[in-house]
Design a protein around this nucleic acid. Structure first.
Length: 310
DNA sequence: AACCCTGTCAACCGCTTCGAA
DNA sequence: GTTCGAAGCGGTTGACAGGGT
């Protein structure tokens, strides 16, 4: 039997996209919407694999895409998210407005991974954009980010990357959720929370994306899902700090305030695994909607909490 | 000027997951 | 419950540009 191939390889064009192809694809998607990628090339008159069309659209042609010039804030956010999530690029990208998983992945692989490997992180390391980052000429005009507040949200439901919760001694596995990184957190990440909160009113991209969160929906939905979470990590949470009671989680009416208390409490001390699990759950939320009433500081709290512990 | 090396990033590939039939 | 198509994801590749010799 076997799966129908994505496309007849001999029939499709491969490699870089031409400006004409981009225009055709862009026009088609704008007219007919996303989806049905397999049929799209035929319908649109493109000699391309449907997968290729999808990728091109998502990573390049889609409105709102930002390219290059990753800001310091974004960079530090990437570092922190990667420390917690590992190589879950889609999840990370989902929290960076206008950025694609591919771009973040590339950026990490070509630059940030080296930086993170650097055993002697220097304060204010040189950002590639500010250094001598070569500017490659694109074959087409990059679509301008029409609206920077339009976050690119991938579904990011799962990852094949294993989440390895830290051992008691704080050791961590490769590509695991890193929750105990001592080397970079203090030097690189320590100001993230500050950045996120202090720049909230400045139209900064990193804070803009936080504005998209619907806090009540986010935290409530997260907490409704915390029951599962607790089955895995709950004992750790419970035993350590009595922060979240399983019964409380099952009682939906109190979960939101509980979560708020958790996030706003000054003396909250989460075990690393618990922290990672909660943040994980927080990041997994897929139903983020704009809400101007949001308290940016509180949303930044999950990240800050971690840093403050250091 | 020619060649080589290195870094970047768009694109590809194979796999997993989801949802409909 | 099973099958299969569609979509999504992360790892990898390869073309290209720029710098060094």
């Amino acid at each position: 039997m076997g799966r129908r191939p994505c496309c007849a390889k001999e029939m499709v064009k491969r490699g870089a996209w031409s400006a004409l192809e981009d225009r055709i694809l862009s026009n088609y998607v704008k007219a007919h919407g996303e989806g049905k990628w397999r049929d799209l090339p035929r319908r649109a008159g493109l000699s391309r694999c449907g997968k290729s069309c999808r990728l091109r659209w998502l990573n390049y042609l889609r409105p709102g895409i930002k390219r290059g010039n990753i800001s310091t804030d974004e960079e530090e956010l990437i570092i922190r998210l990667h420390r917690l999530l590992g190589n879950r690029w889609s999840l990370i990208a989902g929290r960076l407005p206008g950025r694609t998983d591919n771009e973040i992945k590339n950026y990490w692989n070509t630059y940030l991974s080296k930086k993170s490997q650097d055993k002697t992180p220097q304060k204010g390391f040189n950002h590639p954009d500010k250094e001598k980052k070569p500017v490659r000429k694109s074959t087409v005009e990059v679509p301008k980010a029409a609206n920077c507040s339009t976050a690119i949200r991938t579904k990011a439901r799962r990852s094949t990357t294993q989440v390895v919760l830290p051992e008691e001694d704080g050791k961590e596995g490769h590509q695991s959720i890193k929750t105990t990184d001592q080397s970079t957190a203090a030097s690189d990440g320590g100001i993230i929370g500050e950045n996120l909160s202090s720049s909230a009113g400045q139209g900064d991209d990193c804070s803009d994306f936080l504005k998209d969160f619907d806090s009540s929906e986010l935290f409530m939905s997260d907490f409704l899902g915390q029951a599962d979470l607790l089955q895995v990590h709950g004992e750790g949470i419970k035993e350590n700090n009595n922060l979240i009671d399983k019964d409380m989680v099952e009682n939906n009416s109190s979960t939101f305030s509980a979560y708020n208390n958790l996030l706003s409490s000054d003396d909250v001390i989460l075990e690393d695994s618990s922290y990672a699990a909660i943040l994980e759950s927080w990041l997994d939320c897929d139903s983020l909607q704009p809400n101007e009433d949001l308290e940016i500081n509180r949303l930044a709290c999950p990240l800050d909490l971690k840093e403050e512990r250091k």
